[in-house]
Amino acid sequence: MSGAPSPVFEAPWHAQAFALAVYLNERGVFDWPEWTQVFGAVLAEHGLTKELDGGDDYFLAWVGALERICSEKGVAELEALSALKTSWERAYLATPHGAPVRIATGEAG
């Protein structure tokens, strides 16, 4: 191979989101054609307002597709996701730098 290898994932959350889809597919939550249909639809929706460059915006669509397919499959409710996201945000803002960030079990779940 020529040149320096470029990073596979530009950000940790890209990798996490990618792995979640692969994992949930292998677990049988959805099959891959179902995933590509939902992901393709979300990409198309995001692409209506601007041209996607295949970087951050690509994984943003990936996350949107994960939320949508998990909601459709009944494994993750959108309201619960929203509440948990708020919990995580609060936890980050309340945790001293360097300490592990956690949310309480059962919080906003």
Partner: peptide, 21 residues
Amino acid sequence: HAHSLLPPDPALRVKALETLL
């Protein structure tokens, strides 16, 4: 006084999904 770094918005959405699952 630095609190923890707040990850970007989609990262928090991924964390929420992971937590719920």
